[in-house]
Simulated assay, not measured.
Amino acid sequence: MSNINTMLESTSANQHLFVDLNENDAEIVSGGLETFTIYNETGLRIPYTVDGTLTGRPYGDSEWTTGQGGIIKFDYDFGLEGVQLRTYNLADGRKYAFRYDTGTLYDKDIELFDIT
């Protein structure tokens, strides 16, 4: 009889886990909207896409709200012909900034930094 009581207690505890989800958690679990801000601190024109949508402000700052995952794509090296694509999955509620990447040999390489 002890094993049955243990199983019932465990099942009851697991049900409480799902009942305790609030609306915000439920939105995240169901793939809800994500909002984030991208700043351009380089002064360069940086065309980029978020979930396939091209930015309307390649020189300035943009706030994005998306329900499609928050995937950003951009060309990080303007010194080479063609597109040198870099892709990141942005997180809800975060702030990011395009800045020069001082960790490379070419002084015009850019990187997207999480600044939150």
Rank of each mutant, 00 (worst) to 15 (best):
S2M: 10
S2V: 12
N3E: 13
I4M: 08
T6K: 11
T6P: 00
T6I: 13
T6M: 05
L8Q: 15
E9H: 14
T11E: 03
T11C: 09
T11V: 09
A13K: 15
H16N: 15
L17M: 03
L17T: 12
V19P: 01
D20P: 00
D20T: 11
D20R: 02
E23V: 15
N24E: 14
N24D: 14
D25S: 05
D25H: 00
I28G: 00
V29R: 13
V29N: 02
S30M: 02
S30F: 14
S30C: 08
G31N: 04
G32H: 07
G32K: 10
L33D: 10
F36S: 04
I38E: 01
I38W: 03
Y39S: 11
Y39T: 14
N40P: 08
N40D: 10
E41S: 09
E41V: 03
E41C: 05
G43C: 00
G43I: 09
G43A: 08
I46N: 09
I46A: 06
T49G: 00
D51R: 08
D51G: 04
D51Y: 09
G52H: 03
T53F: 07
L54P: 04
L54M: 05
T55Y: 09
G56C: 06
R57S: 15
P58G: 14
D61T: 15
S62V: 05
E63S: 14
E63V: 12
W64V: 15
T65I: 07
T65V: 12
T66P: 01
Q68S: 13
G69M: 04
G70A: 07
G70R: 01
I71A: 02
K73R: 11
K73V: 14
F74L: 07
Y76G: 13
L85A: 11
T87W: 01
N89Y: 06
A91P: 00
A91L: 07
A91G: 03
D92N: 12
G93S: 13
G93E: 13
Y96P: 09
A97W: 04
D101A: 06
G103M: 08
G103A: 12
T104R: 11
L105R: 14
D109I: 00
E111F: 01
D114I: 04
D114A: 03
